[in-house]
Amino acid sequence: MTVSRDNSLAIYRGIKAAGVKSISALPETWLVYLLQLAEDDPDVHLIEVAKEEEAIGIAAGAYLAGQPHLLLMQNHGFLAAINGIVSLAMSYRIPLCMLIALRGHWGEPYPWHTQGGIHTEPVLRALGIPFEYARDPAKVGLQIKQALTFAQSSLSPVALLLDRELMED
């Protein structure tokens, strides 16, 4: 498996076109090119966290400061961040625009990813977090823009699940 450089660039272009000014992230294989692009971008402030729940606090601070913010994480990181999402973002009506690498789903060869992959969608549904799958590089830019717009208007967390079809060549 190789991570798609071209599709990562399509995603990053979408992030920029949506007007994102700061990104919080925890490095993961599918996100490697996205993080490199963010690191090299002087107009985007990137904060890499030690654990994904921190990113919920950072996103809240950026939102309160009026800065459009995007969270990049693996689905296992999303699962690790749930208390922050519920107790901070949902309780205070703070929008979160989460781009989540959906590991452990259709086509997954690695056993250690599979349980997280199987349970990501049911957990999103249980939490009432609106989500969509991103599979098509031609559509992902619009999906990111719509995710950010919807998060900000609904004052809610929203998730765009980055699927294998998009992330791997």
């Binding site: 700061s22 402030h45 919920i56 606090g57 950072i58 996103a59 809240a60 601070g61 309160l64 901070l88």
Partner: peptide
Amino acid sequence: SIGLGLASS
């Protein structure tokens, strides 16, 4: 973490 988000923004 909120403080970091505010201060860096």
